[in-house]
Nucleic acid binder design. Sequence first.
DNA 1: CCATTTAGTTTCGAATCGAAACAGGGCATA
DNA 2: TATGCCCTGTTTCGATTCGAAACTAAATGG
Lengths: 186, 186
Amino acid sequence: MQKVDVYKLIERMAALIRSEERKRCTEMGLQVVHLQVMDYLSRCNKYSNTPVALTNYLGMTKGTVSQTLLLLERKGFIRKEADLADKRMVHLYLTEEGLLMLSQAYPSDLFSNAGLFLEVHNPDLTEEPFISALTALQKAHKSNSFGLCKTCKFFTHTKDGFLCGLTKETLTQSDSEKICQEHTLL
Amino acid sequence: MQKVDVYKLIERMAALIRSEERKRCTEMGLQVVHLQVMDYLSRCNKYSNTPVALTNYLGMTKGTVSQTLLLLERKGFIRKEADLADKRMVHLYLTEEGLLMLSQAYPSDLFSNAGLFLEVHNPDLTEEPFISALTALQKAHKSNSFGLCKTCKFFTHTKDGFLCGLTKETLTQSDSEKICQEHTLL
DNA sequence: CCATTTAGTTTCGAATCGAAACAGGGCATA
DNA sequence: TATGCCCTGTTTCGATTCGAAACTAAATGG
């Protein structure tokens, strides 16, 4: 089998998801980028909630990201906080309103319905092939892979929890399941 | 296993693909929507190359699609042709320049590199789980599923080829492997 | 034959988007 | 400590996207 075909299938799924997202966003008076930003902020860890990380994640220019963040802040969906150590940096947080809006605009019923179909028609389907496909894609992606913290090569177990080998900080269970901009495979 | 998690993985792949697409488009002086439109036109069949189909496929309003098409036409990437039977309808075609631009902007090396990784690290990976996931997503998607012609319930085999049960027209091999806006499962 | 639906365009104002210039903090090195 | 470079983020500009709504014209269906 041509392994490229797998990604054709994934692209088609991505197109369907995108279309659903767009319709949702239009109903809520949002742009698709807004949803992407808020979704990212809800799933990234404390090292990755900065405008630069967003710039890399979305593949846009920093000027554009700056504009979008300005608007989201005006609308009250996100909040900026200066970094105490490095005064150049800014950390972004979803507000209560932002979280609410995200939960309404996110097409979770599309996924849960599709999940139900799978449950019924393909009960022995496992996550493994999808994890393999994601890992391969992350490796092929030239810039950052934006993977989950716990799948990073700097992630280690210690006697009382988890540790990031890059920042030497201890991590909580929740930290370890979030997206990190420093994520590196192998 | 929660089958919803499969779609979390797919979403992450979609985000990586999107980011790569955006960077490619920026380099080529395109908007992401332009690539999406041209990619769709290169993969849809003769029933589905109209502005309305694009509107449904992308989930945008028809006014926006009309604008985008105007620009792509000005740039010489697409060509419009009036439908002979129904004078309200317009058919869209990629020009030579459009095809060339598409082949340059499309992140095919990302997919072929990822495919190579899979070839090496997961040689017994099959397409089946991905097909199942796509089918489930198409069923869960409220509006059109935009699937391949040959997976449609109106698609039938005849003694000298293929037939669309909806239009009663015979189909070529190439037709049967393209995206159709009338695609219906089951 | 007339009302309704459908395909597509036009117009408007807000927002996106990339490019480029800018401000200012960190940091290395001389 | 001073200089220069890199990094993070903002601002400004003009072209384009985007949705909403009004519009034209062709098909459809009583």
